[in-house]
Design a protein around this nucleic acid. Structure first.
Lengths: 151, 151
DNA sequence: GGAAATTCATTTGTACGCAAATGGTATGAA
DNA sequence: TTCATACCATTTGCGTACAAATGAATTTCC
């Protein structure tokens, strides 16, 4: 038998050397959980991360169709629909039929949405800062670089 | 006006210097999306990432209560309940009332669950490998290290 | 022993996140 | 022109993910 336990013990034979705590997928989920909690603690008007991303993309890009907005914000068409619906219910965006293309619903930022985004940007900086707090500045830059490569 | 557009243009004044594409939270979501797609392409028996994590923890730890299993696999009590329910419906785990504590439902791996896990482990290695494919080996180790610090 | 605080499990409500199916609209090639 | 193809939006179904409320059982502390 090895020492007092655990550390170097062989796990259940079924697992062999598979270490869940070292798998990217698992670690990405944990990091995402922590970020989500920090986001929620600092958010304005109850905006969620995806709602915030959507507003940012809308401000960057200007009005666009729902599908395109989904692509800009990296969301599935079913997901972006729900996000846009909720943003519209809250008065942060509005939708209007496109003159050019009768399939399209053009989504645009309302004044209220712009004001909410305006107040949310500083919070976003704080959220990023707090999420990266466990890392030193060079490590932070490195993590961002690696995650971008992974995207 | 600058060049043909976009690249170096100043964004909407409301955004200032806020770059969504550089924010950890956004990048974590993108990386998680990519990993989820790779997972789904290689999974066995339709196991999801959380279901797989749950089975791994159960094999590592042995039978335990639903709440504790949730803590081991980093899931909310409401989330782990749904995961356990679905795993039980598929016959991968079973639950039994605890003799010691009448509040507890002890969750344990079935033979079928063990077999599924057995076939899933190699797939898990492939999934991790493919997810990390854009990175060189030292970068991979670095990313894992940084994500663990962030957890 | 008994009240207070914990813990366990469930349920409800909200919000992603994606697959797949449907139907309307637009476009390009035969 | 018309027909195949592509694109847009919606809907349904399943699976996380967490907050908050509930009720039952256990533990702790006085």
């Amino acid at each position: 038998m090895s020492g007092k336990t655990a550390k170097a013990d062989i796990q259940s034979p079924i697992l062999g050397t598979y270490m869940l705590d070292d798998q990217v997928g698992y670690l990405l989920r944990l990091a995402g959980q922590r970020h989500a909690a920090i986001f929620q603690a600092h958010t304005v008007q109850g905006l969620t991360p995806t709602q915030f991303s959507t507003l940012v993309r809308l401000a960057e890009n200007g009005p666009c169709s729902q599908n395109q907005l989904g692509r800009l914000a990296a969301m599935d068409i079913a997901t972006i629909k729900g996000v846009v619906d909720r943003l519209r219910q809250r008065g942060f965006v509005r939708t209007a039929p496109s003159a050019d293309d009768r399939r399209r619903h053009i989504v645009s930022l309302t004044d209220e949405g712009a004001r909410a985004l305006d107040r949310m940007i500083p919070a976003g900086r704080v959220i990023t800062e707090e999420t990266l707090a466990p890392l030193k500045p060079p490590e932070r830059r490195n993590l961002i670089k690696l995650l971008r490569k992974l995207g």
